[in-house]
Structures are given as structure tokens and as C-alpha cells.
Write a protein that binds this DNA or RNA. Structure first.
Lengths: 159, 159
DNA sequence: TCTGAAAATGGACCTTT
DNA sequence: AAAGGTCCATTTTCAGA
């Protein structure tokens, strides 16, 4: 599953994870490679799926979704088709940014971006109260987004 | 704080959130705008901070970080400088992808990408056990990343 | 909205290990 | 073979009329 990455790959990935707009020529200068080599490596990394995709990161505040909510959910039954249905429901909801199926005290952890608490209340109806397989859920409202990203740690030494 | 977005802005943002590599000419065709207009709008959205940045999304699995962990942390004291120190510690840790300071049963929610459980154990030492202000913490290990992203919901009708 | 210049990407081809 | 470098064609971005 994991793919061999040399020091050049790691450095390139670290850069483009932070900023995908750096021109390949500039990347080449930073890691000591020609632009063509940078181009080939980035293409290879994308083909191999190491780079999943390139995306614009949009500010939730500026777009009127200032509230981040973490919701923990416990299910009634772990029957596979019930779980799959829940996963689909959660994944389909646009306000759900992330959904993890976890082991521990809870079964699901959701991260939501909402306009206000009214919208969240409405979502709890849709996602939790109207779902018979939700046993209970607990809400944590974020007061500050200390760090938000999807960056993967890549020490340059990793092989 | 929030910025006025018309239907064109919303459509463009939806597209580039999913895929930032679509050429502006193609975006123009999709939303019915000239490439120049698309160019101007994207630049404006970036200048205004609506688009925070462009980033490559890297696969944690392919880079050898297959385990996602959610850690809930309760602090001993909410003294402001102690909290700030914790926030900085969490934010600085490369394995911490996200850190939210929350209200509710816990004080912090962390999302971590780790190589294996040994690495997580080591991180709990660094981040939690060696920190006097951590009262207790609870770990949830993700078995499946049902949905992972930072996409902000943007219905085309939003004003 | 159109046109054109500047920049960036990505392929061809050759060289090195 | 595998990967790097140089050079060049194509595509994309982006500013001015």
C-alpha cells in the first residue's frame, strides 16, 4: 500500500502540501532538481495516488460557515448494512467535512462546518434523531480552530 | 467577516474545492463565463481570503501513515497562557493534522495521522503525559475514513 | 470580450549512473 | 533500465485595449 519515497519526493510533497501554486521551476530551485525532473516526479506521485488531488482550501468564516462542530455518535447496532447506510448518509451531507468510523467509546466522529447553531440543530434532526440506529450523540462546539489541515507528516529522511 | 458571494462565485468555489487543476477555460464553460472573468473572480476570491490557499492533498496510506486517531483532551486549568502553550505544542506537532479548542465535555479535539500505534503511544507521552496541564485524554482509533476533506458547503443559492 | 505577451507545463531527446 | 538535464512546443494565465 505504502509507496517508496526518496528524499526528493518528500521535500516536494512537503512543499506542495503547503502551497500547490509554487511553480515547478521554483520547486526545482528549492530541492535542487531541474523543472523537468520536478514535473516528472509530481506526475508520478499523482499517478501513483500519493498525491490524491489538488484542491482550493476555502475559508469557512468568509463563506458564512463560522461554526465548526465535532459530533460523536454511538450506534445501536453494528450490523453491516445499517453501518453502511449511516456512512452514506453522513458522507452525503455537505456540512459534514469529515466522518471517521472509530473504535473506542464512540462509533463515529463527525466534523461539521455550519452557518449557526440553528443549522446544526436542524442537522441533528436529519442525521441523528431521525435515524433509529443512532443510540446517542454528543456535541462539542469549536471555539477556535487551532490547526486545520490534511497535511501528512513527511520527514525528509523517510524511505 | 463573511463575504458576499454570488452564484458564479459559489459555483467556481465548488469546482476548485474539488479540483484545483481544472483550467480556467474549462471552468468558464461549466459556469458560463469567459476565461478572463473566471480569472478575475478567482484572483479576487484569493485576495479576499475566501480561497485561503491551494494545496496538494496527500494520501496518508501511500505515505506510510495509515492510522488516523482522534484524541479528546481535558485540561487541568484554563489559564490563558497555559492554553496558549498547549495550542502551540499541538499545532507544532507534524502528526497533528487538526486541533480544535472546544466547549463541552472536552477541551481539545485532535486528529492525528500516525505510522502505527507505537508512534501514537510515543506521541501521547510527548503531548499528554509530559504536560502537567493535561488532566485526562481519551483515544478513538479510526477504522475507516468515511469522508475526509475541508470542503465548505456552498449551495449555489447562498448570497 | 477579445487579443497577445509572459509564464508554466510537459514531451522529445540525449547523457549519466 | 532508470533518472537527470536541456531544449522546445503547447497550454494556461493574466493584463491591456
Amino acid at each position: 500500500m505504502a509507496i517508496e519515497l526518496d528524499a526528493f519526493d518528500c521535500k516536494l510533497l512537503m512543499e506542495v502540501q503547503r502551497d500547490a501554486q509554487i511553480p515547478q521551476s521554483e520547486l526545482g530551485a528549492r530541492v535542487n532538481l531541474s523543472t523537468a525532473a520536478v514535473n516528472r516526479r509530481l506526475r508520478r506521485l499523482a499517478d501513483e495516488g500519493v498525491i490524491d488531488r489538488y484542491a482550493a482550501i476555502v475559508s469557512p468564516e468568509k463563506t458564512g460557515h463560522p461554526i465548526t462542530v465535532v459530533a460523536n455518535v454511538e450506534v445501536e447496532s453494528e450490523q453491516i448494512d445499517l453501518l453502511d447506510a449511516m456512512k452514506r448518509t453522513f458522507a452525503r451531507c455537505p456540512q459534514v467535512q469529515q466522518c471517521y468510523y472509530v473504535a473506542g467509546e464512540w462509533d463515529f466522529v463527525l466534523i461539521l462546518a455550519v452557518r449557526d447553531m440553528d443549522q446544526y440543530t436542524e442537522l441533528t434532526r436529519q442525521l441523528f434523531f431521525s435515524n433509529n440506529n443512532v443510540k446517542r450523540f454528543k456535541t462539542l462546539v469549536s471555539m477556535s480552530r487551532v490547526k486545520v489541515g490534511l497535511e501528512v507528516p513527511l520527514v525528509a529522511s523517510a524511505e
